[in-house]
Design a protein around this nucleic acid. Structure first.
Lengths: 175, 175, 175, 175
DNA sequence: TATGAATGAGACTTCATTCAT
DNA sequence: CATGAATGAAGTCTCATTCAT
């Protein structure tokens, strides 16, 4: 991977996350990456190829992130670590951009990337089962759904104070 | 409001909800509405004006919807009716289109329409207070956030079975 | 001539003079006239018809203006009165608008309305002949041309001080 | 400057001079230049940018033209050379187009480009002063104004015979 | 006479993509 | 690998004009 290819991916991630896929022109990407427009097409074939590359990079990162949880056997730890991930999006700008892009793309392209979350959901189902919850599968779903809602607010509501809400939600799971 | 103006609003609502604002061309809207493209601009000034008109119509509908809850004094009823609204989006295609558009626009334009939800949130805060919850404001926030997450799945995940999850969530509030 | 027709002519004169014929939309004219757009077409057939009507009105006004000169027999008086006309454009806004429009139209439509000036030119030729000038016809032409240049500056150069220049020009004709 | 960019400038100069800025569509320019319409915007940003480029090219040409006069110290020569310029517009079609465009634009955009003429006016003022004229500044103004009027006729009156008038005007300055 | 909704052609502009260098 | 000129389709919007009322 050449340096310029990296630059393009980086610029595209930022712009797609900020302004959306459709609204970001390839020329804007090229300009921000400090690269000729043509190069984008040499490397990624077309605009959708660029998006695909970004998303794929993300899938892999997500997999690594989840690996840590999936291998955990202590059920309470699984739940705790799930929250940890949710809190991660506030750390680095790049991580934030990346997750924001995931949500944005979901809405723009109308395809929910369930498969990406499946390992996590299975781990949670398992944990809730061990903890004696009545409908562990539904509980796992509900938790992830609530975290989705949380992310939505976090990204879209400027003055949203996420910490107390996370704390409250955690308390409901005894954390 | 002339018949053709109605038709435009209807067509735009459907298309914006399905394909997004940026991705829907005014020519597509005109075609679906069975109308000349120029008419859109005569009635709504520009494409954003068309969107604004749709959203404004929605605000009013939302206000009416919430009125019923806001005036309710029985706290459990407030919570119950809030869930009722959440379940409403499955009834008419038009309602679904409208709410989906709200979510889509939020992500495309990056402005969370908090003000729209404020009365509802206040009513819930009040209800949770009466019910003796410790942090009624946060509880109200969390419930609405979970419902947001629920809507996200409902709209984006094709085979999502929403009812059992709602039922589980309800049970957590003793409903 | 109904009141609304007058209003249209007035509005069109102002706008055409300010912004030019092509750049003035019929809708702008209608709006300024406080009239529906359709009415313009009922009265004047099309946009060019509106312009024609304005110009024709002007021709008649010009004829009346020149009549006074053409009938003058005293040669120096003819020259003096010619200058008088040149100074008239500063009196009423309407007269200014009208003359400005003449110049604007000339450039936009590339048709010099010589016929309008012919009687004046003949009167001047005659006057210069009587005064013993060597090439009375050319002298008449040159004077009118200089006045054209003067008008150009007057209309286009904001801070142009026309009076001293007119005075100098007059002095060259012994006035 | 690529060949196609040149072609665009050339085509635009001709068309703007013939039909005016507003009346010339970018598509017409592209067609005459034998170029895709989009290229105009890639090179000049927008239609006004195209006009600006043409005008700027002209400013430079004008500066070079005037340089010859401004550096002249012999007063009669200054006056004579000024007339020479006036006669130049009849030589090449391109020069004619260019000067015609200047006049057209003046009227369409209502901004008198005085600054362009200032060096010439100063040179003339100086010359008339040396020649003992009473109001050298006004004399310079008047001469330029008369030449403006002359140009107006030349460009707008089809059958206008400019030479004898210039000759008469020259004679008034002893040339 | 007067309105204002409606149209269709065409205006300016953007943009993903191709290609010669 | 990299550039940047060039394209053509499509996008938003304007405008003169028509027509039912």
């Amino acid at each position: 991977m050449t340096e310029k290819k990296e630059k393009i991916l980086q610029a595209a991630l930022e712009l797609f996350a900020q302004e959306g896929f459709k609204s970001t022109s390839t020329s804007k990407v090229a300009k921000r990456a400090g690269v000729s427009e043509g190069l984008i097409f040499r490397h990624f074939e077309n605009k959708e190829g660029l998006l695909a590359a970004i998303i794929q990079e993300g899938e892999e990162r997500a997999k690594m992130l989840f690996a840590n949880i999936v291998l955990e056997t202590e059920p309470m730890e699984v739940v705790r670590k799930t929250f940890e991930i949710a809190q991660m999006m506030r750390i680095s700008k790049e991580a934030a951009d990346f997750w924001k892009l995931q949500y944005k793309i979901k809405w723009e392209l109308e395809q929910y990337g369930e498969h990406k979350m499946e390992p996590l959901q299975r781990a949670l189902t398992d944990a809730f089962a061990k903890l004696g919850y009545e409908s562990p599968h539904l509980e796992a779903q509900l938790l992830l759904i609530s975290l989705d809602g949380l992310a939505t607010r976090f990204y879209l509501q400027d003055d949203f104070d996420i910490d107390p809400v996370i704390k409250l939600l955690k308390s409901k799971y005894g954390i």
